[in-house]
Design a protein around this nucleic acid. Sequence first.
DNA 1: CGGCGCATTGAGGGCGGTCAATTGGTGTGG
DNA 2: CCACACCAATTGACCGCCCTCAATGCGCCG
Lengths: 264, 264
Amino acid sequence: MAERHPSLERLRRKLSHYVETPTSEELEALTTTFGPLQSVPRGAWITTQDSTPTRCSLLVSGFAGRSVLLRGGEQQTTAVHVPGDFIDLHGLLLNSIDHGIVAFTACEVMSAPVASLKAVVDDHPPLGRALWFLTIIDAAVHRRWLTVLGRRPALGRCAHLICELYARLDDVGLVERGRFHMPLSQARVGEILALSAVHVNRVIQELRARGLVVWERGLLTVLDFDALAAVGEFDAGYLQLQPAARGPETSRPSLGARALARSA
Amino acid sequence: MAERHPSLERLRRKLSHYVETPTSEELEALTTTFGPLQSVPRGAWITTQDSTPTRCSLLVSGFAGRSVLLRGGEQQTTAVHVPGDFIDLHGLLLNSIDHGIVAFTACEVMSAPVASLKAVVDDHPPLGRALWFLTIIDAAVHRRWLTVLGRRPALGRCAHLICELYARLDDVGLVERGRFHMPLSQARVGEILALSAVHVNRVIQELRARGLVVWERGLLTVLDFDALAAVGEFDAGYLQLQPAARGPETSRPSLGARALARSA
DNA sequence: CGGCGCATTGAGGGCGGTCAATTGGTGTGG
DNA sequence: CCACACCAATTGACCGCCCTCAATGCGCCG
């Protein structure tokens, strides 16, 4: 039953980006460790800062992010999560987490007890390696954002964020004809990009003026992905979405070449 | 024989920060996968951007860092490594690496073939988990730097870097009476902090003027760690240097309380 | 209708960038 | 031993991106 759930299918797909595609038995073992679907209202904290993780959560629907509260009251978001993502897999091995997880929109999550998940990983080494792989991709995303925050002006940061979300959402089937739901307020985007909400607004207007995106009422349409990627110096390689470069190339068309709404 | 090498002892110590201390048999297995000690001249690339990793390297002596070259010619460093660090453990599971590794000083490294390391990990699950743990700490450090680059002014960034290096070097026994070797040029520090070399210089002068550090000719003395940590809003928790919060507390004195050169 | 959250717009200011010149330490060749 | 080159640190002048503070519009909901 649970295997049918679309989010587990998304997780399966994500895991299959690693060289060793998980078997159905492994997926079954993983699936049964998760508890029931839980709803989290928009704006709520799914986990709180400085707590000891006891469960690991899978985001089924909605957007969420890892946020750090600073003394000055500012907030930096260090990761954005989309459906199909493990939100806090790193909590499996850490004793304390220095950030909280906020539901950017109303979310549905499923969580598994740390102990059970460890047991599953012990019984299925390839699965363990696949989860390790997920945490390593997470780190690669962090590194990319270090260069984005460190070296790129506001416009490039924003373009990069849009491109990354496009690629990741597309990977889990949430982009349709160049359009996807982008329910983050400009203030939240500012928390991600390390910009003020005011400046985010100006930057978005610039992207609109250049004819790169249409973004209104939570719906974002990418008009010219290649141009947007050029502005953001975006290259999807770090996301490791292509299944196993060590094997033969897949015939999946590239992001840029695929259906962009410009033609719609 | 190889176990005697100080850097392997450093690695052992690092691994022991995880709840499951590695057995000598596991360490032996790990040790034998490494090739001979190799010397890398200052400024050379230990691995290059966009290559496919075939080996994983352990830094034995010297400082190194992960650097991304951007189109504009700028360079962002996303991680600094000190002796005892695995430099590119994430390469174990990744097919392509989007950054290179530079020897900030003359370095000595030992490397292990990816295939052998995988085999060792397969044969010793607890060891695999310990290495997973190391990559997760890496990610935690990345997250911390995202907040530092995103939200803190130049002075705080610099203070944070010094505090982090102090803590990490102290962990591997390379701090003596509040002093450690800091062989990075101000330009390199700028690549880490996402600042221009000129501004790094001004910030360092400010730290000196406030009586927080003495930093001359590659030797850095921390005069007032607590004050420096306050400026950088530094809290060592994310480094996970304390062995296993889930067990009983250790009696190891805290960083701030311990030997600082102020008293020397 | 009034309140609220969010997007938008304008004015002014500061942190840190760029450009450029100077100093000083070190190594090298004469 | 000195002249010279070279690199790293330092200093000054000027400037621009993005911040802060504020006000206004706008859609949605009670």
